[in-house]
């Protein structure tokens, strides 16, 4: 299958500073790709380039095979910006009718979309009276008008409570199941875990990693930490034998790779009489994300 969104060696500079540096990625129909990065990593700039609002310094972007911003490209994609604001004195239904009219889709779709995001009851109230979560869901409904081939969602769930967030991803999964390619950005790996098919990590305009979560975990090669609680007085002996980091009088942290974990545990087993507890901590999602987003020569401390 051909990619709906195809970005190739994209560079973009503002006043001599590179905001995007050699970014290449693609999204297939029905696929959800999460773009992770800190504030200022270039996520929103990437979206604006795909929308055709900003012109690349070099490299190419193709939306369904067309130049970004061209008429067929705009017909293929729908967009939800990071900060969404609608006219406060229009109702939710009027807002959706407006965008439906601009896209030339039947108005009958509007009620169905309002139901899909759970806003049917509030449809005729003015948007000014909506909560932040409701406005965000209205934004999502707007982005689903006319079964888009490419969905661009810029931090769609920022500021939402966990329940709304979960519902949001269900609607997005539903859209992907209907064949939309989804590119969404987010701050954290925890948030998009199990919610997207692939993950790309952007830091300082450069693509640091791309793949499934399992791929990223493997590529990062972060150590597994084995946390030992020793019986009183035994910690020094264990530290002497196994090394590692002393946390306090009776605790010791050992790092090991995936391959040596079982071996290490077997060796620890021989000191059963000195151990009170063993805890195995695989690298967390935050660790993986920080590993990639901090890589590179100009490493900054977070």
């Amino acid at each position: 299958m051909t990619a709906i969104l195809d970005i190739n060696a994209l560079c973009l500079s503002f006043g001599g500073q590179k905001v995007l540096d050699d970014v290449s990625l693609s999204v297939q129909p029905g696929e959800r790709l999460a773009l992770l990065g800190h504030n200022g990593a270039g996520k929103s700039t990437l979206f604006k380039t795909v929308l055709g609002f900003l012109r690349p310094s070099s490299g190419t972007v193709a939306v369904a095979g067309h130049a970004p911003g061209s008429n067929p490209a705009r017909e293929a994609l729908n967009y939800l910006p990071e900060v969404v604001s609608f006219q406060r004195n229009l109702s939710g239904r009027e807002v959706l009718s407006y965008f439906s009219g601009l896209r030339g889709t039947p108005k009958t779709e509007v009620s169905d979309l309002l139901a899909r995001v759970g806003l049917l009851d509030a449809a005729d109230r003015p948007v000014g009276a909506y909560s932040k979560g409701m406005r965000q869901r209205l934004g999502l409904a707007q982005a689903l008008i006319g079964a888009p081939r490419l969905l661009l969602l810029d931090e769609p769930t920022s500021g939402l409570d966990p329940v709304s967030r979960h519902e949001f991803y269900e609607v997005i999964a539903d859209a992907a199941a209907r064949g939309s390619a989804v590119l969404l950005s987010s701050h954290g790996l925890e948030e998009v875990q199990d919610k997207t098919d692939r993950i790309a990590i952007l830091a300082r305009g450069q693509l640091k990693a791309e793949g499934t979560l399992a791929d990223l975990a493997q590529e990062a090669g972060l150590p597994i930490t084995i946390r030992i609680s020793a019986k009183p007085g035994a910690a020094d002996d264990l530290h002497g034998e196994f090394g590692g980091r002393r946390i306090n009088g009776c605790r010791l942290d050992l790092d090991c790779g995936q391959g040596t974990k079982v071996d290490l545990l077997a060796r620890l087993g021989r000191h059963q009489d000195r151990l009170r507890d063993i805890e195995i901590c695989p690298p967390g999602l935050t660790d993986i994300y920080r590993h990639f987003s901090r890589m590179g020569p100009t490493e900054d401390q977070i």
Binding site: L51, F53, N71, R74, E75, L77, N78, Y79, P81, V83, V84, S85, F86, Q87, F99, L102, R103, G104, Q142, L152
Partner: peptide, 14 residues
């Protein structure tokens, strides 16, 4: 300034 024009300009409207 409000950001609502970005939404309009993202649609097929000229």
């Amino acid at each position: 300034e409000r950001g609502s024009l970005a939404l309009t300009f993202a649609t097929p409207v000229r």
